[in-house]
């Protein structure tokens, strides 16, 4: 594990750090351990993909990182903030300020227009809408002309791009994406991935993305492979073939 850890650059302080994180679902005889003492630092301005077979704990990993789920043990820190033991209210504030979250199912508020959905985190934080930033995000996402539409009037790809804009509107420290392309076709997936890539390279965002898709994973800077709740492999500068091969190998080992 230490060897793996050392491959990440040590100079800048990590945007996010998971230390000895365990998570157990249920209790007593029905208990399922989803994460086993996972430790990882995410450097700022990097794009990390998290892969693994079903049930490997990818989503739990992401939700613990995003503060949506409290680890059973271990600690999660976002920059200077230690998330463990925070009250739900404080946690909500930290999430709002420092984490953006993108879901497989888009999860836009059906009653709000695209623009209102994007501005929602700002509204929740009682901050005024940053119109210039919103316009820039919308332009980069290619949805500038769809802002007054409500979610059901948008295609899946457009909805997901609105969701990414919503996650970026607060300029968060980390953007967490859970299978963002899982419900999209090839072309829409490509648009979403390039938007995430752009967020990293041009806006300096830190992005963590859970995915099943080797092609999606290949657009990241590095790929973490999770099996049975542990990080068992890391791949830098991934390409689809190598990722697929590793996945096949991991599946075989199971």
């Amino acid at each position: 594990m230490n060897v793996l850890q050392s491959t990440v650059g040590q100079q800048p302080p990590p945007a996010m750090r998971l230390a000895q994180v365990c998570h157990v679902y249920g209790a007593r005889e029905t208990a399922v351990t989803a994460l086993k003492e996972v430790t990882w630092d995410f450097s700022p301005g990097t794009f990390t993909a998290v892969m693994g077979p079903s049930g490997s704990g990818k989503t739990t990993f992401l939700q613990c990182a995003a503060g949506l789920l409290e680890p059973t043990s271990g600690s999660v820190s976002l920059g200077p903030h230690q998330l463990n033991g925070m009250s739900e209210k404080k946690l909500a504030t930290v999430r709002r300020e420092l984490v953006g979250f993108v879901f497989q199912a888009f999860n836009l508020m059906p009653a709000l227009t695209a623009a209102e959905n994007i501005a929602l985190p700002l509204r929740l934080a009682r901050r005024g809408a940053d119109q210039a930033w919103m316009n820039e995000l919308a332009k980069r996402a290619g949805i500038a002309d769809r802002l007054s539409h409500r979610p059901h009037e948008l295609s899946g790809g457009q909805q997901q791009r609105v969701a990414i804009c919503r996650a970026l509107i607060t300029k968060p420290q980390v953007l967490c994406a859970d299978e963002p392309t899982g419900a999209l076709d090839k072309a829409a997936s490509r648009a979403v991935l390039s938007l995430l890539r752009e967020a990293v390279t041009e806006l300096g965002q830190t992005v963590i993305m859970v995915t099943h898709d080797p092609i999606a994973a290949a657009s990241a800077d590095q790929v973490l492979f999770l099996v049975d709740g542990r990080i068992i492999d890391v791949m830098d500068a991934p390409d689809p073939e190598r990722v697929a091969a590793t996945m096949t190998r991991l599946a075989g080992e199971e």
């Binding site: 709002r96 979250f101 508020m109 929740l124």
Partner: peptide, 14 residues
């Protein structure tokens, strides 16, 4: 829907 709002940063009070 409420869980979603919380995921994007709404506090329980909100």
């Amino acid at each position: 829907q409420f869980a979603l709002l919380r995921a994007v940063g709404a506090t329980p009070g909100q």
